[in-house]
Write a protein that binds this DNA or RNA. Structure first.
Length: 243
DNA sequence: TATAATGTTTGAAC
DNA sequence: AGTTCAAACATTAT
């Protein structure tokens, strides 16, 4: 479920409920649910992997982590963490982390850090990367403070596409190559979005979960890399190791 | 059936 | 006191 593009899809799917009044609330979420009742949704937003339901004076933040899911005008067997009922239908959220953010949503988020946001600022990302020269690029790409919305699939696909070894050190990657990585992180996120909408995301994976490099036919290495120990799929031959 | 996976927070240990 | 890291949590497809 997660990764920024999937949240953008959710935002689009619930758009018909924007401006509508929540007439009832249910679920296991440990928040003051009464607060939502009889309130109109001001807007649905997203910041990276955060799905945001903005109301008057506060915002509900939903994070799907690894296993979260949602259903619109449908339910499943397990109990929802949060259900929002409207006159027009319902939205059910499962297995997610829910939190209330007080006040103006803009005071909580820097939109320029979200690769999917129109305010995305690649120069700022580059500046932040300069501060962490000793980190591996596989960890850096997953830093939500730098690349909000980028997840493990995007990480692997970006690095394969720009031919950079996941264990490369940020400080050793030439500036021009770094710019390429940053640009590809945004570009691939939108490719991800479009392919996911067409339900053909996996078809376009070049490295993630792959066994063989389609460029040179050598094996794709699967390894848990970096401090974050997330799995990386890469070609030792085609991806340059900057160390 | 056991395992692993698109993720993050927490609190213990250093 | 600051950093680091393993554990905890959740669900579903293979």
């Amino acid at each position: 479920m997660p990764e920024g593009p999937s949240i953008v899809i959710l935002k689009e799917l619930v758009a018909p409920f924007a401006g509508k009044e929540i007439i009832a609330v249910e679920g296991d979420a440990k928040i003051d649910q009464e607060r939502l009742e009889n309130q109109a949704v001001k807007s649905f937003e997203s910041w990276g992997k955060h799905f945001l339901i903005s109301l008057e004076g506060f915002t509900i933040r939903i994070h799907f982590l690894l296993f979260g899911s949602y259903l619109i005008n449908e339910r499943k067997a397990s109990k929802p963490k949060l259900s929002l009922f409207f006159k027009e239908g319902e939205i059910n959220f499962y297995a997610c982390a829910i939190k209330v953010l007080e006040g103006d949503i803009n005071s909580h988020y820097d939109w320029s850090g979200d690769v999917m946001n129109e305010k995305w600022d690649s120069k700022k990302a580059k500046k932040k990367l300069k501060e962490i020269p000793n980190k591996m690029i596989c960890d850096a790409l997953l830093e939500q403070e730098i690349f909000s919305g980028v997840g493990n699939i995007i990480k692997n696909e970006v690095l394969y596409r720009v031919r950079v070894h996941p264990k490369s050190l940020v400080g050793k990657i030439p500036s021009r190559k770094m710019t390429e990585i940053i640009e590809e992180a945004q570009k691939y996120s939108f490719d991800f979005l479009n392919w996911k909408k067409k339900n053909e995301l996996k078809k376009h994976w070049l490295a993630h979960t792959k066994k063989t490099c389609l460029r040179c036919n050598l094996p794709i290495i699967k390894e848990y890399t970096g401090v974050k120990k997330r799995r990386s799929f890469y070609c030792e031959n085609c991806q340059k190791f900057y160390e």
